[in-house]
């Protein structure tokens, strides 16, 4: 029944679930935003996430050390970023297509390693929910905000940090300059290549964490293609958020809330065909964007390779 939706349990459930589900999107999308702000479109996020997810899981499984797993995921993500940076900055390859190539590589490679090193689905004890004495016990609020795993808090901490770096630091200024007008930035002595290397590797690292947040915090398993399109949604959310961390947060939450809502609708037997329910978060995301026509322009040099002395 529709009225079943309007209960405290459902409301709290949706909020808690939305915050949890938004975690991987936040890491990946904020990483992608850094790249795009500097003029690089990376469609390979999903592949970086998958390799990160596998690396984290495998290391955590074999060493029992979750932090070491997380670190490996960051390293693997950074390496993927490094390769992407070389291809798009030095070789000036078409960014969108390179990204698709890296996506396919990550998709296949993570699965191959999984089959060769593990062979079957296993589980690991992931990052536990953090119990904050006092706060976690507040009714409702505690369940929503104060009983999540550590990576959820990292993701939310990342939002103000990313905002600060992009808007209040010289580094952020350089990133934006390189993305808006690389020629001018270059003539002012900013190394376009170095800035782009930095943002792409940072993006890869964050995608690696996004993968780890799935495999050793949220789901605690690894299986082939376990991200199942999440990385592409993350890229889309960058546009939703108009390259601003706070906007990305809004998009990630909206998408996750609606997704959680449709799960609840089915659980409460509201008579909507399951396929139609699953469609909801995608439809709503588009509709919200249509309703709030954005005035923000894309970085001018987005997806355009830079060559000195052109």
């Amino acid at each position: 029944m529709i009225s079943d939706l309007f209960t405290v349990t459902v409301f709290v459930g949706i909020l808690a679930s939305g915050i949890r589900l938004s975690t991987p999107y936040l890491f990946a999308a904020i990483g992608e935003a850094f790249g795009q702000k500097s003029g690089v479109l990376n469609l390979g996020v999903e592949g970086q996430m998958l390799l990160g997810a596998f690396a984290a899981f495998y290391v955590a499984l074999t060493t029992g050390n979750l932090w070491l797993g997380l670190l490996t995921a960051m390293l693997v993500g950074a390496l993927m970023g490094l390769a992407m940076a070389y291809v798009t900055v030095n070789l000036q390859a078409e960014q969108g297509i390179s990204g698709i190539g890296f996506y396919l590589f990550g998709l296949g490679m993570s699965d191959l390693l999984f089959q060769k090193l593990m062979g079957t689905v296993e589980t690991v004890k992931g990052f536990p929910k953090i119990h904050i004495p006092g706060l976690s016990d507040i009714p409702y609020i505690g369940e929503i905000f104060f009983s999540q795993n550590i990576l959820v808090y990292f993701a939310y901490l990342l939002v103000p940090i990313a905002w600060f770096v992009l808007n209040k630091t010289t580094l952020g200024l350089k990133i934006r300059a390189v993305g808006e007008n690389p020629d001018a930035a270059d003539s002012l002595g900013v190394s376009v290549a170095r800035v782009r290397y930095f943002t792409i590797i940072l993006g890869g690292t964050l995608s690696g964490i996004a993968g780890a947040s799935l495999s050793i915090a949220l789901l605690n398993v690894f299986q082939q293609n376990m991200t199942s399109g999440l990385g592409f949604i993350a890229v889309a959310l960058v546009y939703f958020g108009a390259w601003r961390p706070i906007g990305i947060l809004g998009g990630a939450l909206l998408f996750s809330f609606i997704n959680s809502l449709q799960l609840w609708m089915q659980v409460l037997s509201i008579p909507v065909p399951s396929d139609i329910a699953v469609m909801m978060p995608y439809v709503v995301t588009i509709l919200v964007l249509v309703a709030t026509v954005s005035k923000v322009r894309a970085p001018s040099a987005l997806s355009k390779p830079f060559e000195r002395g052109d």
């Binding site: 390859a93 297509i97 698709i100 190539g101 890296f102 396919l104 590589f105 296949g108 191959l112 089959q115």
Partner: peptide
């Protein structure tokens, strides 16, 4: 061989081909 290898290989092909564009240019 696992189908995963093929997927990874396809990815490499895409990256290599798109990178070779620079030579043409």
């Amino acid at each position: 061989v696992p189908s995963a290898l093929i997927t990874a290989l396809n990815g490499l092909v895409v990256v290599f081909v798109v990178s070779s564009e620079i030579i043409r240019r």
